Simulated assay, not measured.
Amino acid sequence: MTALETVQQYYEAFNAKNWKGMLALLHPEVRHEANQGDVRIGLEKFTEFLQKMDEAYEETLTNMVFFSEPQDKRVAVEFVVNGIYKKAEDGLPEAHGQSYVLPAGAFLEVTDGKISRVTTYYNLPLWIELVSKP
């Protein structure tokens, strides 16, 4: 399987809420660089993050465009996050089922057939504005 196919499967699993399928595509020492906060290393930390996200957000990704490079190691993806904010996190606005549509992107690296890095970017101030509207 190519790096591009691996990353496409990862996002298909995300949209299907198939967390086990997502985790199966990750390298044991995956490096997760989220838009905000500390870098997480390893499947255990990524699994904890995923559980927390599942509690707080209901998200589906659309308008996905994938870009790969000739060495078949890195993939970039641009997408739109269509979400519902279910449970507030520390330092973020109160959650009461607000919906949001937010452009985002990610950079992923594949090592030995597994995703070894996930770096995600989105506009946090815009997201806060979207979920803060009455």
Rank of each mutant, 00 (worst) to 15 (best):
L50C: 10
F107T: 04
D72Q: 05
H96W: 02
G105D: 03
E58P: 01
S68D: 14
V65N: 10
D38H: 05
M64P: 04
F67Q: 11
L43P: 00
K73F: 05
V81E: 08
E44T: 15
D72I: 08
P70G: 04
Q36H: 05
G97T: 11
D90Y: 08
I84F: 00
P93H: 04
N63L: 06
P93V: 08
V75G: 00
Y100D: 02
D72L: 04
G37S: 08
G97W: 02
P103V: 09
G83D: 01
M64W: 00
V81R: 05
I84R: 15
F67D: 10
G37I: 07
F79H: 01
V101A: 14
A95F: 01
E59C: 15
Q71A: 14
E94Y: 08
E48R: 12
N35E: 14
K87F: 07
V101C: 13
D38Q: 09
A34S: 13
P93E: 05
E48H: 12
M53L: 09
F107E: 06
T62K: 06
A76E: 01
K45L: 12
T62Q: 06
V39G: 04
T60G: 07
Y85C: 03
Q98I: 12
R40A: 11
D72Y: 06
D72V: 06
F46Q: 05
K87T: 15
T62G: 09
P103F: 07
F49R: 11
S68W: 00
G97F: 04
M64Q: 12
K87H: 14
V39Q: 05
Y85W: 06
E94A: 14
L108Y: 01
E69I: 02
A104V: 05
Q36F: 05
V75Q: 00
D90T: 14
D72N: 13
F49S: 11
D90I: 12
V80H: 02
K45T: 10
E89Y: 03
L92C: 09
Y57E: 11
G83F: 00
E109C: 06
L102T: 10
E58Q: 13
N35F: 06
Y100N: 02
H96E: 11
L61N: 04
D54I: 08
E59T: 15
E69V: 07
F67V: 12
Y100P: 00
A88W: 03
K87N: 14
R40G: 03
T60F: 03
R40I: 05
G83Y: 00
L50Y: 03
R74G: 09
G37H: 08
A56H: 08
L50T: 13
A34I: 05
K86Y: 02
E69F: 09
E55V: 08
Q36N: 11
F66K: 02
A56F: 02
M64A: 10
K87Y: 10
E55C: 08
H96V: 02
A104G: 15
L43M: 08
T60L: 07
S99V: 10
A104P: 04
N63K: 13
A106G: 10
D38E: 14
P70T: 08
A76M: 11
F107Y: 08
E78R: 14
D38S: 11
F66W: 02
V101S: 15
E109D: 10
K73V: 10
V77D: 00
A95V: 09
N63T: 09
L102Y: 04
K86F: 01
A34N: 15
V80N: 02
L50R: 08
A106P: 00
H96T: 09
F79L: 07
N63I: 04
F79G: 01
